[in-house]
Design a binder for these strands. Sequence first.
DNA 1: TATAAACCCGACTAAAATAGTCAAGTATCA
DNA 2: TGATACTTGACTATTTTAGTCGGGTTTATA
Lengths: 141, 141
Amino acid sequence: MRLTSKGRYAVMALVDLARFNNINPVSLRDISLRQGISLDYLEQIFSKLRKKEIVQSVRGTQGGYILNKRAKEIKLTNIFEAVDEKVKTVQCKKDSKKGCNGKLTKCLTHNLWDELENHINNFFDEKSLEDLVKDNNERRV
Amino acid sequence: MRLTSKGRYAVMALVDLARFNNINPVSLRDISLRQGISLDYLEQIFSKLRKKEIVQSVRGTQGGYILNKRAKEIKLTNIFEAVDEKVKTVQCKKDSKKGCNGKLTKCLTHNLWDELENHINNFFDEKSLEDLVKDNNERRV
DNA sequence: TATAAACCCGACTAAAATAGTCAAGTATCA
DNA sequence: TGATACTTGACTATTTTAGTCGGGTTTATA
Ligand code: FES
Ligand code: FES
């Protein structure tokens, strides 16, 4: 059970972005240098974030990205959804009547994994980008 | 962020085993048939469970496996640990001073992932095999 | 004592997922 | 007109996962 680097980087980059979120857009190049993430990879990630309207792009020189909502309103859930970092614990299709064993009843552990999935998603629902920025500022002091 | 089938199967097989845990050992062949898990794969899994003293093996005809502790004392944590299904959210080495970016400070999100890891592990620490068997019996009624 | 049921062990492999790279653009500012 | 930065899509190497396979050894029982 591991977090992928796509999700990890997406959040990391957005925290970086949120910290500079005053007037000027922040370029991916800067984020890449500060956070040590490949520029090409960041571009993939931000393309998705833009399509889900989490960030806005500003093209041309001095361009970059800015948040499209207030940091308070961006939850981890939204970020993860945008970059397809999904929590998947059950094996079966959730809406199907069939279990992961192919039988017509759900397997012995189905319910457990479902609980787990909720447990994890609760964590993501609660944390906002603002929380993360604050946490970081406090730690820095 | 997904659960692997090794962890999923390990728990599934143990729940099956725990339900029959009276006198006779349960053969992997039976579990394989009931739960639809490859026998060869089950053998790998039970080999690990045995080494971590979660189950005991009984060799020869009529052999199989029995629990090595009371179901109440076997937590999901123990099972997952036994089959190397580990929760890994941070990228960096935890004990190292270096961050995942190679720098000497931990990255902006390190603390967040650490919290997440704890959050997930809490869930695993609380659930015992007994809970799972009970849950299943209740649902069956 | 032969046979079959079951555990035991290590090596191997196909498929999937991950973590990127690369190439060829377009928009905008100075 | 150059430089900076976003945009897009295809491609690929690596790693992880989810098994398979082939050979054992042990033990109950007929
Ligand atoms: S995980 Fe849903 S039926 Fe097994
Ligand atoms: S995850 Fe630990 S430093 Fe980034």
